[in-house]
């Protein structure tokens, strides 16, 4: 769209912007947004996953013209949204098991194909249900290129069961199963864990992206783009957990933002196995700014401060910055 005014006060950093045309506004800014995950759910105060899920599903609902079915893995999102007798969901929704969500979604999608509907299918789960127990079904869904958008809400541990380590838990983080004592004084050990976005890319599926609750417009753009594509698609959304991370509930978005701006959580997208864009860091910050707001890293700042461990984490961020070109404004996706 050609316009002489290039500047919009808050640009696309805020949820809405009254200075933009209706068509350019975010889904979340709209009075008609679906609120696919509605009020009354039992998520903790400041829950990043509840927020990320509404962001993502509302965007998918708009893209699908509300013709959408969601499949949900066991986990916080499932538990806090559907305790009998109350459901917070506004769209057809099914929860089967912890580890089979991608497969259930495959079945739902198959049913749509056989019935000749245009109904779209979304699957969602936490990092445990995605990167660990649900990984086999996820890989199978990818490999068959089933027409499913799978969204992982990554809060970096098993929060529903009381904060245990998952394969998405970052190094040095304290969880109930990576307590920083004895043989592992620094918490979760370095050199383990996996990047499911990169593994998804190895399946050469049509679309893979990472996103964050700290960048709604980027998240919505990615969900919308994913919904414009058929076949297996994967979006990995970083969603801070105030409870599990030992953070102020008011800091959920701030933490997500610091994770991006430090380089610890690279935001990028890929098509058919190749990276096609990244979200450039706007104001780079040291990882310490991110770490020190969270009790799960508090052991790194106690006397004596674990300078070397923090440097190792900084090295991870620096590698991400190099690898995903996070400081390059050119080629940025958004």
């Amino acid at each position: 769209m050609e316009t002489t005014i290039k500047f919009y006060q808050t640009d696309t950093f805020t949820v809405g912007n009254r200075l933009l045309s209706e068509a350019e506004r975010s889904v979340q800014a709209g009075m008609q947004r679906t609120n696919a995950l509605n009020s009354g759910h039992r998520a903790c105060q400041g829950c990043g996953e509840a927020l990320g899920a509404r962001f993502a599903v509302d965007a998918a609902m708009r893209a699908a013209g509300n013709d959408l079915i969601a499949c949900n893995a066991t986990g916080c999102l499932e538990v806090f949204s559907t305790p009998y007798p109350e459901s917070s969901w506004q769209l057809p929704w099914i929860h089967s098991l912890f580890g089979n969500t991608a497969a259930v979604a495959t079945g739902v999608a198959a049913a749509q194909r056989v019935k000749g509907t245009k109904t779209r299918v979304l699957a969602q789960g936490g990092d445990g249900g995605t990167t660990d127990i649900g990984f086999g079904c996820l890989s199978g869904m990818f490999e068959r290129n089933d027409d499913v958008l799978y969204i992982c809400y990554d809060n970096e541990a098993y929060m529903n069961t009381g904060v245990q380590r998952s394969s998405a838990t970052p190094p040095a983080a304290r969880t109930a199963t990576t307590v920083p004592v004895g043989q592992h004084p620094n918490g979760n050990v370095f050199g383990k864990g996996k990047s499911v976005p990169l593994i998804a890319m190895a399946h050469e599926i049509p679309y893979v992206a990472t996103a964050s609750v700290a960048d709604l417009r980027d998240l919505e753009a990615k969900v919308t783009k994913a919904m414009s594509i058929h076949g297996a698609r994967y979006i990995h959304i970083h969603v801070p957990c105030p409870l599990g991370w030992g953070a102020d509930p008011a800091h959920t978005i701030k933490l997500a933002r610091l994770a991006i701006e430090s380089g610890l959580f690279p935001v990028f997208e890929a098509e058919h196995g190749e990276i096609t864009g990244h979200r450039a860091i706007r104001e780079q910050v040291p990882v310490e700014d991110y770490l020190k707001l969270q009790k799960r890293f508090a052991h790194l700042f106690r006397n004596p401060k674990q300078v070397e461990v923090i440097a190792q984490l900084q090295a991870i961020a620096d590698r991400n910055i190099r690898r995903f070109k996070l400081l390059e404004k050119r080629g940025a996706a958004v």
Binding site: T10, T14, V15, G16, N17, R18, S26, Q28, A29, N35, L37, N38, S39, H41, A43, G46, C47, G48, A50, L51, R54, F55, L216, T252, I253
Partner: peptide, 12 residues
């Protein structure tokens, strides 16, 4: 009216 509060509330 940037809609931030409206958008970022996890509880709608």
């Amino acid at each position: 009216e940037c809609d931030n509060c409206y958008g970022v509330c996890p509880d709608s």
